[in-house]
């Protein structure tokens, strides 16, 4: 048997027992499919679906794909905000479709859904993630140590562990990087996500590769391109203080303290 929860997320008075409140919502989706009649041109498509109070944008996209147009294409996997597959631009803001409740993005008006910006679109909401991961790989996103390995674990104080806790939360969804106006105009820029992952190691007391990473990020396409617009912090579905992390990396570059 399956527990049914009727609309618990609304703040309005709870509906009668057993009643499930539903509403209609329209999604305006930016479509692109080089195999279609539109060729290289992207077009807007509108779909209306019936949704429940706890439904997320991903549920609405699934309803469209499963009931109306099977060709609507997007990535998704875990559907609860931990795998990072379904970052997209919803009403002009980068979010995870599986973490955005329809009721929170004003379902009275059409909700616009577009692919994240700054990465080549492959089909509909799917972009080529390779350039994004290439930047990530460049900042040496792994623990660098020298000397013999200890027989037990390396010791690390709870305070030292806490120092980089925030940036360990990154799920590489690209919501931050693809919200950055610098990245939109300059695809060479490492982007916030790569810097966040560099931060995660630079400030890890066990790591000895900070100097190398700071050297990489001192590049003309590195941290100095950041204009502190805070789009990345706002976009992060994991609540990471991305801009602050970038600032900390900048400061480490000047003070060499980390």
């Amino acid at each position: 048997m399956t527990a049914v929860l009727e609309n618990p997320a609304t703040e309005s008075p709870k509906p009668e027992a057993g009643a499930v409140s539903t509403f209609d919502v329209t999604l305006r989706v930016r479509r692109y499919n080089p195999e279609s009649e539109h060729g290289e041109e992207s077009v807007w498509d509108e779909f209306t679906v019936t949704a429940h109070g706890t439904d997320r944008v991903l549920d609405a996209l699934h309803k469209i794909k499963w009931e109306q147009d099977g060709s609507l294409t997007f990535r998704r996997s875990c559907a609860h905000g931990v795998c990072g597959s379904d970052a997209m631009r919803i009403n002009g803001r980068n979010r995870l479709a599986c973490k955005t409740l329809l009721k929170d993005v004003n379902p009275d008006k059409p909700i616009t859904v577009e692919p994240i910006k700054g990465l080549p679109v492959i089909k509909d909401l799917v972009v080529d993630m390779e350039p994004f991961f290439a930047s990530y790989r460049e900042i040496m996103p792994f623990l660098i140590t020298s000397g013999n390995e200890p027989s037990r674990e390396r010791l690390q104080s709870a305070e030292d562990r806490e120092r980089f806790d925030d940036t360990t939360k990154c799920i590489l969804c690209a919501a931050c990087t693809s919200s950055c106006p610098v990245f939109w105009t300059d695809g060479q820029y490492f982007g916030p996500a790569a810097i966040v992952n560099a931060h995660r190691f630079i400030f890890d007391s066990r790591d000895e590769g900070a100097t190398q990473r700071l050297e990489i990020l001192n590049d003309k396409e590195g941290v100095w391109r950041c204009r502190t617009t805070f789009n990345c912090t706002e976009a992060c579905p994991r609540g990471i203080e991305v801009t602050k992390a970038i600032q900390e990396v900048k400061r480490a570059m000047i003070t060499r303290a980390f």
Binding site: F142, L143, E149, P150, R152, E153, R154, L155, Q156, S157, A158, R161, F164, D165, T168, F201, D204, R206, D207
Partner: peptide, 20 residues
Amino acid sequence: SVLDLEKMGLPFNRTPEGRI
């Protein structure tokens, strides 16, 4: 297995003594 992961860099929570 746990110690392997720690050596690979996994940020385990720590005890007051700095152990996993």
